[in-house]
């Protein structure tokens, strides 16, 4: 398990590095090397660390451990073919982590990052839509059952393409520098993570790496099915590159527009699942 955990962390960080590189090349900048996020994580691990005088100490430190803990649990669940509902619960609880990061320091920048995280709750609704659409077809939410279903019936990507789009939007909303990345936009310095530095930031980087790996792996297993391991890695890179293109070619929305568009997407997806439910 430790090997898988380390691999997931480093590969997830590598994907985030590829994401930055692709965005930079589209914008005609050289960009950082693709292993930059790994270097960040290592660099922060050895930097001077303390807790700000204004912070709520237990929460400031504890939320970093919670962040790593929940995504480690998510990796464990997905590797053991557990319930998709648990993965999605963890994804939603990541919002609490962002909120906790932002609020615990006492900094107004962090606080507004946390508040933005709360008001963009509509971005989670497509997750329920995905769960509901999958449940209608596979009659199970166990990842092992969903993968087995696709071996006989073909990828769910072709059966319920709009549910895959909903999940893709969910992935997009969690990618840095994307149209919905209002929680860490530049007018808030680094948003919810502004005051977390040193080892705390290294912990956050580990969490980001794990989160990216787990979400992409979930997308592949749920909508494409079982693939050889090397093909899963290539699929992850391809999905990351497509997300990078979307992020590079679309401006970061204002908080109001971001919430409005996410709500509209959520509404459309709910209508789609309602139609699916009636038809089945």
């Amino acid at each position: 398990m430790i090997t898988e955990l380390l691999f997931a962390t480093f590969f997830g960080l590598l994907l985030l590095g590829i994401h930055r590189k692709v965005i930079a090349r589209i914008q005609r900048r050289p960009g950082p090397p693709i292993w930059q996020e790994i270097l960040h994580m290592l660099k922060f691990s050895f930097k001077t660390t303390w807790v700000p005088a204004t912070a709520s100490t237990a929460l400031f430190v504890g939320v970093v451990l919670v962040a790593i803990g929940i995504w480690t649990a998510a990796l464990l669940v997905i590797l053991s073919g557990g319930s998709l509902l648990v993965i999605f619960a963890i994804y939603m609880l990541h919002k609490i982590v962002e909120h906790g990061f932002g609020l615990s320091s006492g900094s107004p920048y962090g606080k507004f990052g946390g508040v933005r995280s709360v008001i963009s709750a509509a971005s989670e609704i497509p997750l329920f839509v995905t769960v509901a659409a999958i449940a209608i077809f596979t009659k199970s939410l166990m990842i092992s059952d969903i993968v087995a279903y696709q071996e006989f019936q073909g990828p769910l990507l072709f059966t319920i393409p709009l549910a895959a789009v909903a999940m893709y939007v969910v992935l997009l909303s969690k990618m840095p520098f994307g149209p919905f990345s209002i929680v860490e936009s530049k007018e808030l310095v680094s948003g919810y993570k502004t005051e977390h530095f040193g080892v705390w930031r290294a912990g956050l980087e580990v969490c980001n790496g794990l989160k990216t790996y787990v979400l992409l792996l979930t997308f592949i297993l749920v909508f494409i099915g079982s693939l050889p391991f090397w093909m899963i890695l290539i699929a992850m890179i391809l999905i990351t590159v497509s997300l990078s293109f979307t992020c590079a070619l679309s401006p970061m929305l204002s908080p109001y527009d971001s919430v409005t568009i996410q709500t509209l997407i959520a509404g459309l997806m709910v209508a789609y699942v309602a139609i699916l439910g009636v038809m089945s």
């Binding site: 709520s56 100490t57 400031f60 504890g62 919670v66 320091s105 606080k111």
Partner: peptide, 19 residues
């Protein structure tokens, strides 16, 4: 998770917000 955050509430002092 509810338990962990309840423990945080129990042991944390609130942050001092800068204005």
């Amino acid at each position: 998770l509810a338990l962990v955050f309840s423990v945080f509430v129990l042991v944390s002092r609130p942050e001092r917000q800068l204005e």
